[in-house]
Design a protein around this nucleic acid. Sequence first.
DNA 1: ACCCCCTAGGTAAGCGCTTTCCCGGCAGGC
DNA 2: GCCTGCCGGGAAAGCGCTTACCTAGGGGGT
Lengths: 339, 339
Amino acid sequence: MATLADVARRAGVSTATVSRIINNSPKPVADALRERVLAAVAELQFVPNANAQQLARADRTAVGVIVHDVSDPYFAEITRGLQRVATDHGRLVIICNSYRDPERELAYVDLLHAHQTAAIVLAGSGYVDAPITARLDGKLRLYQSTGGRVSVIGRHEHAGDAVVPENEPGGYLAGDALYRLGHTAIGVIAGPRHLTTTTDRLAGLRRAAKEHGHRLGARQVVYADFDRNGGAAAAATLLAQNPGLTAIAALNDSMAVGALACLRERGIDVPGEMSLIGFDDMPISVDVTPPLSTVRLPLEEIGVRAMTLALREGDRDGPLVEHAAAKLVLRGSTGAPRG
Amino acid sequence: MATLADVARRAGVSTATVSRIINNSPKPVADALRERVLAAVAELQFVPNANAQQLARADRTAVGVIVHDVSDPYFAEITRGLQRVATDHGRLVIICNSYRDPERELAYVDLLHAHQTAAIVLAGSGYVDAPITARLDGKLRLYQSTGGRVSVIGRHEHAGDAVVPENEPGGYLAGDALYRLGHTAIGVIAGPRHLTTTTDRLAGLRRAAKEHGHRLGARQVVYADFDRNGGAAAAATLLAQNPGLTAIAALNDSMAVGALACLRERGIDVPGEMSLIGFDDMPISVDVTPPLSTVRLPLEEIGVRAMTLALREGDRDGPLVEHAAAKLVLRGSTGAPRG
DNA sequence: ACCCCCTAGGTAAGCGCTTTCCCGGCAGGC
DNA sequence: GCCTGCCGGGAAAGCGCTTACCTAGGGGGT
């Protein structure tokens, strides 16, 4: 492990000179020296210790990202946007998966704080639980008070900037579309109860129901895990609990795909006998049969905007909140109920 | 930004004592003091500076992961396995996306080296280009010489441990299956030319062709970008260049899905008029219509094994190389050629 | 010819921790 | 009652860098 001092000794100069050269600081250095030092760096294969650099400079370079799970396409797409912007700014990104565990999320905030990251981006961490939210908020504020920036994707109930996807309006869009088509018996495949993404989207659906003179009864809503198999199981439950069902709204596309598989298995034609609508507009939605009607959220763009906020200089104008609009995308999985 | 010294002052003890307490070092400390210090830590909301800790301790904690793109389902699944193991070991994971750019990959190796990560896991970085491979190898060796561990997913041509997916045998499996069904005019949608994943899988396909008394001509192989749209475009090219084609092998499932979309668009029945086989067995493969025949690679398990290797203590027995077997999965997208 | 100032490089003081070494005091053994 | 040994705690030396400050020359202006 060659150090700066080794290089300095080798080149016969002081460590200050070496430091200046490798950081190409504005201070002028004679070409001869520069060459000699660079040669020494190469010979010794010197790689500066980033920890020492950060400590000495007191600057913050990397940015931390906490998501539920990068392997979930929803977060994968957001992450892609986050990464792109960070990379453009020459920032290293540290990605942490919380796996929807609030405690793990809290631990990661501490960790990223301890590592002096320049910013923390939280994606998808809207918890219904108030104590959790308060603790998270406390940690984030502390982090901010030491100079860190925070940017949240989801409900804006934390310190820091936010880009909030229109989940409630999106839910409304889905419900409204179904009711307009003439459906009256609608089943909902919801996500985990403790996430605001679930409660918000569901609230939108309920608003649409009300507006059309209906309501969603307890057995019309089944909670699942935001993944394909959860969706398939929930669809089965829904079918069993609601004999006259003509439409299903899933709160994300993964679950909708699972529901579709369940329906196919039972020989229920979509959209002939059952309409199905998803949420998010994942890339795969267009490739299933029939292609999935859904509510589109500009995920990658959300990531881009969140990282842009996280990297902006100065927050003199206080926290910024941006909204990302939901848009209805009608494809082949929805239609009017049969006669 | 409260520091250790602040806490010490506040509690009226030396920094050494505070350090011992927060790290609960084996050295005994009187309970009264401990309480006082802990109280001070809480009041000041002290969060230790991880950079300073790493510098002082000279230990390595985080582990770095370099993948092409986490938002690609292939890498998402591998990453999930990597993460799980790392988390179980209490390690922070730093994920870096190289976007298949060798230069960026090299830069990331330096970066992770500089940050004193305990290990670097490289996923998917098999480049056909020899100079690139050599440079990568040089950097990895240097990193190893300073105590870092390296673990590679893919061809084993680097220093360090490796888990190598059986790409060539997998390609053979796909080709063999097609020829056995009676196909003779087979088109191939390959990945980027500069990746060994492409060349290895293609080599397997060629071996199968040869064994069955055929060969793959230049216009039977089209290179694309390992993504859906690349696959769709390649399928169109293949169709145009090979009038009598009865089967297509795509070198990954994303491209196969794209090809499927292309065929559907043109009203070509799968598998009636055209058989299609993919590679990887992505989660979505079972949800398209018809479900995709493919070659399964245990991706998450590959991730698990790679991280396990990366985290193992001591390498007294030299680098370890493990293989991950490919397995043929026949579903609905393949059949015998029509009459 | 003198002075001043600018330039190139070195010296050394940190950055926030950890840890070795040392010291004072107490208990126990003889 | 004195010495030994142990225990709790502090002082201080780093870890590998950066950078403010200082110094020694050398060139130009008058």
